[in-house]
Amino acid sequence: MSQITLVEAVTLALAYEMQADPRVLVFGQDVGLNGGVFRATEGLQERFGRERVLDTPLAENMIAGIAVGMAAQGLRPVAEFQFMGFIYPGLDQILSHAARFRNRTRGRLSCPVVYRAPYGGGIHAPEHHSESTEALFAHIPGLRVVVPSSPARAYGLLLAAIRDPDPVIFLEPKRIYRAVRQEVPDSGEALPLDRCFRLREGADITLIAWGASLKETLAAAEQLAGEGIEAEVIDPATLKPLDIHAVIDSLEKTHRCLVVHEAARFCGLGAEIAAQINEYAFDLLDAPVQRVTGYDTVMPYYRLEDSYIPGVEQILAAVRETLDYPDGGRR
């Protein structure tokens, strides 16, 4: 079995589900003839034809709206936005219609659509190409927000997203599209949505990160292990709804927590995770929940990208600050 990248795992999952379910179709700007700007849909039009892999005009509101209509009529559309920063013209359709379909029809109809978008910085892209606004979608009732962080999770979670009866925002961290390879069996086996993945066991501190930020978070955990500090690393994967029970289970061991994300700090998902920990597990904490995040600015151009994206040293500094926090003689 050959090893594949995250973006290749996306292609593999799309192809598997299109072969298995004739209701599944893919569309978006340049997804057919060119195979997508990152080649995530390469070869699909040749294999499944132009009726199931459709190139669209540059019209994001139309892409989002057509997906709602298709889903309402029994299809399972996978709509691609070239970059997350281009998704905003489609917000009216996504927020006002896709997210509300089940509630509006009192459960008579659902909206099984997947909206895919490459997201995040780190590839030296121009403006609007490096957005990390996952919290915007997580705030909307009726939407599920999923972020894979490895080839295996991209494959399994995308299959689960396509099979889900409700709309899923599937955000693919393009900074790690080709950063790592894994053996991924093309078995059609989906991974569970709404569940955290524990990527590393530890008893000293819980590190929570998703998407591309796991690269630096795992590197920091490895360095901490060399210093005798065992960090537990959790990938939420499904950001909405959040598996807070897995986080609490980890805190029962570690009693300290740090959340890492690339998105801006204010109202980022780290704030929601910290709030839920304070609400449901305050008595477990030996220190305040810390956050290492992007800044409350627009993602800068490529010369300053590395200064914006949280790095290993920032994570290490926050871990040490959290571990040094007085515990009031609790332990």
Rank of each mutant, 00 (worst) to 15 (best):
Q93L: 10
T133V: 13
L214Q: 05
Q276Y: 07
Y325E: 06
G202T: 09
L284R: 10
L158G: 01
D55Y: 05
G211S: 09
I205L: 15
G43D: 02
G142W: 06
L316E: 07
Q82A: 13
L258R: 03
R116I: 00
K215F: 13
E262I: 08
R163W: 07
P151W: 07
A190W: 02
H245W: 11
P165K: 08
L316G: 02
R320S: 06
S110G: 15
A203G: 14
I205G: 06
G36A: 08
I87W: 10
I169N: 01
A271L: 00
V312P: 00
M70D: 03
L304G: 05
I63E: 01
I315W: 03
W210F: 15
L58F: 13
R330F: 00
P288Q: 08
G69N: 05
A318S: 14
Q93V: 11
R100E: 13
E201G: 07
Y16E: 12
R39H: 12
D186V: 03
H97Y: 13
E272Y: 09
I66A: 15
F48H: 03
I277N: 03
E17R: 12
E80V: 05
I273C: 01
E232T: 08
D306P: 05
W210E: 10
G211H: 09
K240S: 15
P185N: 09
F81W: 05
Q276P: 00
G85M: 10
V24G: 02
A117H: 00
V7I: 15
D166R: 12
R153F: 11
M70F: 14
Q93N: 13
W210R: 04
R256P: 00
A264L: 09
M1Q: 15
Q93R: 11
R104A: 15
M70L: 15
R116P: 02
G32I: 03
F38V: 05
E305D: 11
G65V: 11
D283C: 10
T105W: 07
G69I: 02
V24H: 05
E17M: 04
L251M: 08
A225N: 11
E230H: 15
Y155V: 01
A99K: 02
T105H: 06
A15K: 10
L269N: 14
T5Y: 11
A71R: 04
G121S: 15
A15N: 03
V312Y: 03
Y308T: 05
F282H: 12
P118K: 10
H129N: 07
A160K: 03
P192L: 08
R303T: 13
A9S: 12
Y308S: 04
A275K: 04
K174G: 02
Y115S: 07
E131R: 08
G28H: 07
A135K: 01
F83S: 11
E131L: 09
V260M: 12
R163E: 14
V289P: 02
S187R: 02
V78P: 00
V319A: 10
I169G: 01
L258D: 04
F81V: 06
